[in-house]
């Protein structure tokens, strides 16, 4: 068999996964895309192992390791996503922007006057404790019943 077939398939699969990682909004979907990329790497490893007839079977052994690590990764990743979902009320990657630079025309760090109070609470509503509490509550209820 031509090595080009698995190699090209792996390359294309990798790029598909790449697209998924860059384009998907839901964190779980991103994790799935990461799995696709990892599998592309695995395919390459296996193909090259077969081609090279490595006596150590380095390719296949590494594939096994990769699969194991991927399993660990997905477990941890999902735990993180679930926790984020529980605390933030969303699993959308592009809404988790606590690390972003605040907008230049935004409010000053502290409330400057009496009028600033309600505005403050309004603008903070996406991350305000009220709405995620209900969401988290329902999610917790479901998880508890499982």
């Amino acid at each position: 068999m031509h090595l080009a077939y698995p190699a090209v398939l792996a390359a294309l699969l990798f790029c598909v996964g790449l697209y998924g990682v860059l384009a998907r909004r839901n964190a779980v979907l991103m994790l799935m895309s990461v799995e696709l990329m990892l599998n592309a790497v695995n395919l390459n490893l296996v193909a090259f192992d077969v081609w090279l007839r490595d006596t150590l079977h380095a390719g296949q052994a590494l594939t096994l390791f990769t699969i194991t690590i991927a399993a660990a990764e997905i477990g941890l990743g999902l735990a993180i996503v679930l926790m984020v979902f529980r605390t933030q009320g969303t699993a959308d990657i592009d809404r988790l922007r606590e690390l972003s630079e605040p907008p230049a025309d935004g409010l000053p760090p502290g409330p400057t006057g009496a009028e600033a109070g309600p505005d403050d609470s309004d603008t903070a509503s996406p991350a305000s404790p009220a709405s995620p509490a209900s969401l988290t509550g329902s999610a917790q209820g479901k998880a508890g019943a499982v």
Binding site: V21, A23, I93, D94, L96, R97, E98, S100, E101
Partner: peptide, 9 residues
């Protein structure tokens, strides 16, 4: 600063 929009993607 626009580049640092907090979006990992």
């Amino acid at each position: 600063r626009k580049a640092q929009n907090g979006n990992a993607q």
